[in-house]
Simulated scan of single mutants.
Amino acid sequence: MHPKPVAPALQSVTAAVRRIAGSRAGSPRVLDALTAGGCLALMALDLPGLAAADNSLNGPTAALVLAAGAATLLVRRGLPWLSFAVALLFIGWLHELTLVQFALYSVGRYRGRRAGILATAGYIAFCLALFHVPGWPLDHARTLSSFLGLVVPIGVLASAVGIAAYRQDLVRELDARRAESAVLQAVQHERTSVARDVHDFVGRELTLLTVRSEVLSLRARETAYAKDFEELADTARRAHLVLNEIIVQRGEPAATPGAHGLPALAEQSGRAGSPVRLDVDPAVHALSPLRQAAVYRVVQECLTNAAKHARGETVDVRISADGPQLRITVGNGLPPHAPGRAPVSAGSGTASMAERVRSLGGTLTATRTDRRYEVVATLPCPG
């Protein structure tokens, strides 16, 4: 038998594989290929004496057999039991323990705790049965000591590492699903907020149109235009009813404030520990209510982020409406040292802001450097 303390080597090879893979470590095929290559490299350490020790293979044939066994790791995600079966064959035929460690890790990693425990128990039972076969190997006392001190521990360790990685994968997937759900909820909430603002702003204009049409209809009762004004008032009322049916409100809060609410927002942020330098183009106050609401939401979310991640840093808010575009720029410095305890954040604020801006045909980008965080949003400004 060729017992080598390769359980630590397995961890070293795995770490080396991840370093070599670099930015492509997320590619399953690349990682599997590097894993198979690492396993083959470890097994190749036995290649010079393998044929002599087992009296069954010559050098080139042994190399091909080992390469074929390592190649089963290429399909370890979908067929981890294949590598496990070949690894048991290698133990009985070549007395080679390297592949079984990779196989046990793969079973635990991609099939979970129960499969990992089952594979480990099968591996230990198989080795124990082999040790009681007459003539395999010759020195039973030495091999029993090796069995208890090496064979069992490396199998349990490899399987345990795989099961732990499996659990980490589950936790990461759960965190990703939660983050995705939080972003979707934030986007949906922002869409509801936009719809509510549309209802409030457009509904108010339709109400004014209805009232004005009715007034004109009364004034023109004795003229030929009276009927036209009445039809216009009826059309405005029907449009308002349709708007109410499409966007149903049940006790929701008032519409999002516009540009007039920015000074109060900046004052509130200053009291919370994040002073604000506010520079608002007067032309912003002449924009449509929906665009002013978008300005308010972007600035509000940026100030919230600054309070969470850069408390005490001054926030620069600049809003300009020159030309065909409205531009919102909010930036703040970042503290040199991260806070001792991370703030509670779902990470959905940027998605919420972006949804509001996209609903009006604009764009939003968030840029982070070592010392500064900046959000730039642009909206079309129709004349």
Rank of each mutant, 00 (worst) to 15 (best):
L31C: 06
F126L: 05
V215E: 15
T207F: 09
P263F: 03
A16Q: 07
M353D: 00
L40Q: 04
A306K: 01
H199A: 15
Q325W: 11
I117F: 09
L174H: 14
C127S: 11
V215A: 15
I91D: 03
A224P: 07
L265Q: 05
Q249P: 00
A36Q: 04
P137W: 00
S56Q: 11
V183L: 04
M353H: 01
F147R: 00
M1S: 14
L88G: 06
A63I: 03
L42F: 02
T350C: 01
A16K: 01
A366L: 15
A186T: 04
P263Y: 02
L94C: 01
V75P: 00
E205T: 11
R109T: 05
L278N: 08
L128D: 07
V215I: 13
M1Y: 11
A179R: 15
E374M: 11
V330T: 06
H95L: 10
E245P: 00
V295W: 09
L50R: 03
S145I: 01
L104F: 11
H199K: 15
S27N: 15
R358H: 13
A195Y: 02
W136P: 02
D281F: 01
T378Q: 04
V375A: 04
L138Q: 09
L45H: 05
S288Y: 00
G258I: 06
N58A: 14
P80G: 08
S217C: 04
D279P: 02
D281A: 00
R142V: 00
S159T: 10
H2K: 08
G331I: 01
A53W: 06
R196Y: 12
A85M: 11
L326Q: 08
P324D: 03
L287Y: 05
R291Q: 15
H95P: 02
A182L: 06
V344L: 14
A87E: 08
A224S: 15
F90I: 05
Y123F: 15
S145L: 04
F201H: 15
A164C: 03
R271I: 11
F201V: 13
V152Q: 09
L216E: 09
G312Q: 04
A33M: 13
T365I: 13
A220C: 06
S146T: 02
N305M: 02
S145D: 08
A121H: 07
T350V: 13
P28T: 11
L184D: 14
Q168A: 11
H95E: 11
L74W: 04
D32C: 07
P134E: 10
A36V: 03
A52G: 14
L243F: 07
Q292S: 06
P137F: 00
L170E: 15
S352D: 12
